[in-house]
């Protein structure tokens, strides 16, 4: 009997293993599947962004364009412009354009130097927000754009907390995570993101890193640039040209 009992226990274990295998198997096949190669076999872009801080005039046309293009509610921003004012004593003051028209007002007081720094989602190659999302609503497309699946998002806000650049927010109207999409709906129509499109000074640039002849690729070869918080290992894809060391 003990022998029989052992056998039957083994059989039970086998069946349990087979049963759990049934549960695990489909997941294994799903995660192992590769994205299909594009039907045309054509060049696949890998989008990235550059900001030339030496050219920005702080007009905030980018912020207004982003709001108009993407219906961004008042009080939250997918992109924003920071004004840095560094006093003679080295004190650093940072402010952003307020109001729904996003206009900087002149501020008095002597400064050693002052400049504008446009900011937006860095569309990190190793994005933290994607890793913390519990429902798979944060994802990165194969052309390098980090997006939010609004049908999956549950608005828990983990990604908002995880983003080291403050680029995500909870949309007060949809109550879901929201962020810069590089105007993904414009890209496949051959249009640049709205902020790049309306920048009157070409301080914002957008392009394809996979194309060595794209304006962005050429620029990044020719000019020196910095990344925001590179020590975090997020591999951001927003390259800052002429960025001051005070900016974090």
């Amino acid at each position: 009997m003990p022998h029989d009992r052992n056998r039957s226990r083994r059989e039970v274990l086998k069946m349990l293993a087979a049963g759990s295998g049934l549960l695990v198997f489909p997941i294994g096949t799903l995660t192992a599947s590769e994205p299909e190669a594009s039907a045309e076999g054509a060049h696949k872009p890998y989008w990235a962004y550059a900001v030339d801080t030496t050219r920005c005039i702080g007009c905030c046309a980018c912020m207004r364009a982003c709001r108009d293009e993407n219906d961004v509610p008042e009080g939250v921003f997918r992109t924003w412009v920071e004004r840095y004012r560094i006093g003679m004593d080295g004190e650093v003051k940072v402010d952003v354009a307020t109001g729904n028209d996003h206009v900087f007002e002149p501020v008095g007081g002597e400064v050693a130097k002052a400049f504008f720094v446009p900011k937006l989602c860095n569309h990190c190659e190793k994005s933290v927000c994607n890793q913390v999302c519990p429902v798979g609503a944060a994802y990165q497309t194969d052309d390098g754009v980090v997006l939010v699946d609004s049908k999956q998002c549950i608005g828990c806000g983990y990604c908002v907390q995880a983003c080291p650049y403050g680029s995500r927010f909870i949309n007060p109207e949809t109550h879901m995570a929201d962020k810069c999409t590089f105007c993904y709906h414009r890209l496949d129509k051959g249009l640049a993101p709205a902020c790049v499109h309306t920048c009157p000074r070409e301080a914002r640039l957008f392009g394809d890193l996979n194309d060595p002849k794209s304006k962005l690729s050429v620029l990044l070869r020719q000019r020196s640039y910095r990344l925001l918080k590179p020590e975090l290992g997020t591999h951001p894809k927003c390259y800052y040209l002429g960025l001051d060391r005070e900016v974090i």
Partner: peptide, 9 residues
């Protein structure tokens, strides 16, 4: 289909 997210998105 494309990764750990909904490909239709």
């Amino acid at each position: 289909d494309l990764g750990h997210f909904r490909a239709d998105a």
